[in-house]
Simulated scan of single mutants.
Amino acid sequence: MSESLAALAAALPLASGWSIHTLWMRRRIEAGRRDPLTGLWTRDAFEQSAARLLARHPYVAVVLLDLDGFKAVNDNHGHAAGDAAIRATGASLNDALVGHRRAVAGRLGGDEFAAAVALSDPIALPWLLRGLHGEITAPFRHAGRDLTVGASIGAALSSDIPWGTGRELSALLRLADEAMYAAKRSGGGWLYPGAIAPAAGTTAGRRTGRPGTHTTQRREAA
Protein backbone atom coordinates (compact mmCIF):
# COMPACT_ATOMS: atom_id res chain seq x y z
CA MET A 1 0.00 0.00 0.00
CA SER A 2 2.79 2.40 0.95
CA GLU A 3 4.55 1.60 -2.33
CA SER A 4 1.40 2.50 -4.28
CA LEU A 5 1.11 5.80 -2.43
CA ALA A 6 4.75 6.55 -3.08
CA ALA A 7 4.34 5.82 -6.79
CA LEU A 8 1.27 8.04 -6.94
CA ALA A 9 3.08 10.84 -5.12
CA ALA A 10 5.98 10.55 -7.56
CA ALA A 11 3.63 10.68 -10.55
CA LEU A 12 1.71 13.75 -9.40
CA PRO A 13 4.38 16.34 -10.31
CA LEU A 14 4.76 14.73 -13.74
CA ALA A 15 1.00 14.77 -14.34
CA SER A 16 0.84 18.36 -13.11
CA GLY A 17 3.66 19.29 -15.45
CA TRP A 18 1.86 17.77 -18.43
CA SER A 19 -1.34 19.61 -17.49
CA ILE A 20 0.48 22.93 -17.37
CA HIS A 21 2.18 22.16 -20.68
CA THR A 22 -1.16 21.23 -22.30
CA LEU A 23 -2.74 24.43 -21.02
CA TRP A 24 0.22 26.46 -22.31
CA MET A 25 -0.03 24.82 -25.73
CA ARG A 26 -3.76 25.51 -25.92
CA ARG A 27 -3.16 29.15 -25.08
CA ARG A 28 -0.45 29.39 -27.73
CA ILE A 29 -2.78 27.90 -30.33
CA GLU A 30 -5.59 30.24 -29.24
CA ALA A 31 -3.28 33.25 -29.46
CA GLY A 32 -2.29 32.23 -32.97
CA ARG A 33 -5.92 32.37 -34.02
CA ARG A 34 -6.37 35.92 -32.68
CA ASP A 35 -5.50 39.16 -34.41
CA PRO A 36 -2.74 40.79 -32.32
CA LEU A 37 -4.09 44.35 -32.67
CA THR A 38 -7.76 43.77 -31.87
CA GLY A 39 -7.98 40.37 -30.19
CA LEU A 40 -10.63 39.38 -32.75
CA TRP A 41 -10.49 36.07 -34.60
CA THR A 42 -8.30 35.86 -37.70
CA ARG A 43 -9.92 35.03 -41.04
CA ASP A 44 -9.67 31.22 -40.80
CA ALA A 45 -10.87 31.07 -37.20
CA PHE A 46 -13.74 33.44 -37.96
CA GLU A 47 -14.88 31.42 -40.97
CA GLN A 48 -14.87 28.19 -38.96
CA SER A 49 -16.98 29.70 -36.16
CA ALA A 50 -19.33 31.44 -38.61
CA ALA A 51 -19.90 28.19 -40.48
CA ARG A 52 -20.93 26.51 -37.21
CA LEU A 53 -23.45 29.30 -36.53
CA LEU A 54 -24.94 28.83 -39.99
CA ALA A 55 -25.31 25.10 -39.41
CA ARG A 56 -27.10 25.55 -36.08
CA HIS A 57 -29.38 28.59 -36.49
CA PRO A 58 -32.06 29.50 -39.06
CA TYR A 59 -31.39 33.26 -39.09
CA VAL A 60 -27.76 34.31 -39.29
CA ALA A 61 -26.62 37.74 -40.47
CA VAL A 62 -23.21 37.73 -42.16
CA VAL A 63 -21.71 41.21 -42.03
CA LEU A 64 -18.69 42.73 -43.76
CA LEU A 65 -17.35 46.20 -43.03
CA ASP A 66 -14.60 48.35 -44.45
CA LEU A 67 -13.32 51.57 -42.89
CA ASP A 68 -13.64 54.85 -44.80
CA GLY A 69 -11.04 57.54 -44.23
CA PHE A 70 -8.54 55.09 -42.74
CA LYS A 71 -5.77 56.11 -45.16
CA ALA A 72 -6.30 59.76 -44.23
CA VAL A 73 -5.85 58.91 -40.55
CA ASN A 74 -2.58 57.14 -41.35
CA ASP A 75 -1.34 59.90 -43.64
CA ASN A 76 -2.30 62.82 -41.40
CA HIS A 77 -1.64 61.40 -37.93
CA GLY A 78 0.83 58.54 -38.40
CA HIS A 79 0.68 54.75 -38.27
CA ALA A 80 0.20 54.73 -34.50
CA ALA A 81 -3.08 56.55 -35.07
CA GLY A 82 -3.99 54.00 -37.74
CA ASP A 83 -3.33 51.19 -35.26
CA ALA A 84 -5.48 53.02 -32.72
CA ALA A 85 -8.28 53.21 -35.29
CA ILE A 86 -8.04 49.45 -35.89
CA ARG A 87 -8.08 48.73 -32.14
CA ALA A 88 -11.04 51.07 -31.64
CA THR A 89 -12.93 49.35 -34.46
CA GLY A 90 -12.35 45.96 -32.87
CA ALA A 91 -13.59 47.26 -29.52
CA SER A 92 -16.61 48.87 -31.20
CA LEU A 93 -17.45 45.64 -32.96
CA ASN A 94 -17.36 43.79 -29.66
CA ASP A 95 -19.49 46.49 -28.00
CA ALA A 96 -22.11 46.32 -30.75
CA LEU A 97 -22.38 42.53 -30.37
CA VAL A 98 -22.37 42.41 -26.59
CA GLY A 99 -26.12 41.72 -26.42
CA HIS A 100 -25.88 38.82 -28.87
CA ARG A 101 -24.86 35.56 -27.22
CA ARG A 102 -24.50 33.71 -30.52
CA ALA A 103 -22.12 35.94 -32.48
CA VAL A 104 -18.56 35.87 -33.74
CA ALA A 105 -16.38 38.68 -35.09
CA GLY A 106 -13.07 38.74 -36.91
CA ARG A 107 -10.54 40.98 -38.59
CA LEU A 108 -10.02 39.76 -42.14
CA GLY A 109 -6.98 41.94 -42.73
CA GLY A 110 -6.10 45.60 -43.11
CA ASP A 111 -9.17 47.67 -42.31
CA GLU A 112 -11.68 44.93 -43.19
CA PHE A 113 -13.76 43.19 -40.54
CA ALA A 114 -16.54 40.62 -40.46
CA ALA A 115 -19.19 39.33 -38.10
CA ALA A 116 -21.76 36.54 -38.06
CA VAL A 117 -24.73 36.97 -35.74
CA ALA A 118 -27.55 34.53 -35.04
CA LEU A 119 -30.81 36.50 -34.80
CA SER A 120 -34.04 35.40 -33.15
CA ASP A 121 -35.96 37.35 -35.80
CA PRO A 122 -34.72 38.73 -39.16
CA ILE A 123 -36.50 42.01 -38.45
CA ALA A 124 -33.70 42.82 -36.01
CA LEU A 125 -31.09 43.13 -38.80
CA PRO A 126 -31.50 46.90 -39.48
CA TRP A 127 -31.14 47.67 -35.76
CA LEU A 128 -28.00 45.52 -35.61
CA LEU A 129 -26.42 47.32 -38.57
CA ARG A 130 -27.43 50.78 -37.37
CA GLY A 131 -25.94 50.12 -33.95
CA LEU A 132 -22.77 48.69 -35.46
CA HIS A 133 -22.30 51.70 -37.72
CA GLY A 134 -22.88 54.10 -34.84
CA GLU A 135 -20.31 52.36 -32.63
CA ILE A 136 -17.61 52.21 -35.30
CA THR A 137 -17.98 55.81 -36.50
CA ALA A 138 -17.85 57.25 -32.98
CA PRO A 139 -14.69 59.29 -32.21
CA PHE A 140 -11.76 57.47 -30.61
CA ARG A 141 -9.09 59.12 -28.48
CA HIS A 142 -5.46 59.12 -29.62
CA ALA A 143 -2.54 61.30 -28.50
CA GLY A 144 -4.85 63.75 -26.77
CA ARG A 145 -7.22 64.30 -29.66
CA ASP A 146 -10.49 62.84 -30.99
CA LEU A 147 -10.22 61.11 -34.36
CA THR A 148 -12.88 59.45 -36.50
CA VAL A 149 -13.18 57.00 -39.34
CA GLY A 150 -16.22 56.15 -41.41
CA ALA A 151 -17.56 52.72 -42.25
CA SER A 152 -19.26 51.00 -45.16
CA ILE A 153 -21.18 47.93 -44.00
CA GLY A 154 -22.87 45.22 -46.03
CA ALA A 155 -24.87 42.25 -44.78
CA ALA A 156 -26.62 39.12 -46.03
CA LEU A 157 -29.20 37.07 -44.16
CA SER A 158 -29.03 33.30 -44.37
CA SER A 159 -32.83 32.88 -44.41
CA ASP A 160 -33.05 34.89 -47.64
CA ILE A 161 -31.09 32.21 -49.49
CA PRO A 162 -32.54 28.75 -50.30
CA TRP A 163 -31.08 25.72 -48.58
CA GLY A 164 -28.23 24.06 -50.42
CA THR A 165 -24.97 25.42 -51.73
CA GLY A 166 -26.31 28.98 -51.50
CA ARG A 167 -26.35 28.69 -47.71
CA GLU A 168 -22.59 28.23 -47.61
CA LEU A 169 -20.63 30.95 -45.86
CA SER A 170 -18.76 31.84 -49.05
CA ALA A 171 -22.02 32.74 -50.81
CA LEU A 172 -23.20 34.91 -47.93
CA LEU A 173 -19.83 36.65 -47.72
CA ARG A 174 -20.04 37.40 -51.43
CA LEU A 175 -23.51 38.94 -51.04
CA ALA A 176 -22.39 40.93 -48.01
CA ASP A 177 -19.36 42.15 -49.96
CA GLU A 178 -21.56 43.32 -52.84
CA ALA A 179 -23.83 45.17 -50.40
CA MET A 180 -20.83 46.73 -48.67
CA TYR A 181 -19.44 48.19 -51.89
CA ALA A 182 -22.89 49.39 -52.93
CA ALA A 183 -23.04 51.27 -49.62
CA LYS A 184 -19.53 52.63 -50.23
CA ARG A 185 -20.45 53.87 -53.69
CA SER A 186 -23.41 55.68 -52.15
CA GLY A 187 -21.21 57.47 -49.61
CA GLY A 188 -20.93 54.91 -46.82
CA GLY A 189 -23.31 53.67 -44.16
CA TRP A 190 -24.93 50.25 -44.17
CA LEU A 191 -26.87 48.19 -46.67
CA TYR A 192 -28.30 44.70 -47.10
CA PRO A 193 -30.24 43.23 -50.04
CA GLY A 194 -33.63 43.80 -48.40
CA ALA A 195 -32.93 47.44 -47.60
CA ILE A 196 -34.39 50.16 -49.81
CA ALA A 197 -31.27 52.36 -49.71
CA PRO A 198 -28.06 52.60 -47.70
CA ALA A 199 -28.12 54.59 -44.49
CA ALA A 200 -25.18 56.97 -44.73
CA GLY A 201 -23.48 59.59 -42.61
CA THR A 202 -21.88 62.86 -43.68
CA THR A 203 -19.11 62.93 -46.25
CA ALA A 204 -15.60 63.08 -44.78
CA GLY A 205 -12.07 61.82 -45.47
CA ARG A 206 -11.85 59.41 -48.40
CA ARG A 207 -9.84 56.33 -49.16
CA THR A 208 -7.96 56.30 -52.44
CA GLY A 209 -10.52 55.87 -55.22
CA ARG A 210 -13.39 55.29 -52.78
CA PRO A 211 -15.92 57.59 -51.14
CA GLY A 212 -16.01 57.66 -47.33
CA THR A 213 -18.20 58.92 -44.53
CA HIS A 214 -18.22 59.42 -40.81
CA THR A 215 -20.59 60.37 -38.05
CA THR A 216 -19.73 61.82 -34.67
CA GLN A 217 -20.38 60.00 -31.39
CA ARG A 218 -17.81 58.52 -28.97
CA ARG A 219 -14.98 55.97 -28.64
CA GLU A 220 -11.60 55.92 -26.88
CA ALA A 221 -8.62 53.81 -27.78
CA ALA A 222 -5.53 53.13 -25.75
Rank of each mutant, 00 (worst) to 15 (best):
G212D: 06
A143K: 09
R87A: 12
R56W: 07
R27F: 02
A88G: 05
V60R: 04
D111P: 12
A124M: 09
P13G: 10
A84Q: 01
L14R: 15
H57C: 01
A80L: 13
S120K: 08
A222T: 05
D66N: 13
L128W: 09
R145W: 00
R207I: 07
S170Q: 15
V73W: 03
A155E: 04
L97F: 11
P193T: 07
G131Q: 02
T42I: 13
A72R: 14
E220Q: 11
F140M: 00
T165L: 09
I86N: 05
A204S: 12
V73D: 05
L53A: 00
T215D: 09
A55D: 02
W41Q: 11
L65A: 00
D111E: 15
L67W: 02
L23A: 15
A182R: 14
D44F: 07
F113N: 01
L125D: 10
A81E: 04
S186A: 15
S92V: 00
T22N: 15
R218G: 05
L175I: 11
D68C: 07
T148L: 06
M1W: 14
W18K: 14
A182M: 10
F140R: 01
L54K: 12
M180I: 08
G212C: 02
A195H: 15
A156P: 10
A51W: 05
E30R: 15
F70M: 10
D75I: 11
D160T: 08
G212K: 07
T38R: 03
L97C: 03
A195L: 15
E135K: 08
A183G: 08
A151L: 08
F113L: 06
P139H: 07
A138V: 00
G166D: 10
A11P: 00
R141N: 01
G39Q: 07
G209D: 02
A15P: 00
E3C: 07
D44Q: 10
A138D: 02
M180Y: 03
A11H: 09
D44H: 04
V62N: 03
S19G: 10
A9P: 04
A31H: 13
A199W: 11
T148K: 02
D111I: 12
D95S: 08
G209T: 03
A182Q: 13
T203R: 15
P122K: 11
G201T: 05
R101M: 08
L172N: 04
L53R: 02
L108Q: 06
F46S: 02
A96F: 07
A114P: 10
P211N: 02
V117H: 05
R174D: 10
Q48C: 04
A103C: 05
H100I: 06
L53S: 00
K184R: 14
S120F: 05
A88T: 01
G131Y: 01
H57S: 06
L65F: 08
I161M: 06
L5A: 12
Q217V: 06
A176V: 03
H100A: 05
I86L: 14
R34N: 06
A6Y: 04
I86H: 04
P126D: 07
A31G: 12
L157W: 00
V117G: 02
H77N: 06
Y181N: 05
A9H: 13
R218S: 02
T38K: 08
D111C: 10
L64Q: 10
W190V: 03
S159T: 14
S16A: 14
A15F: 13
P198Y: 08
A155G: 01
S159D: 05
R28A: 13
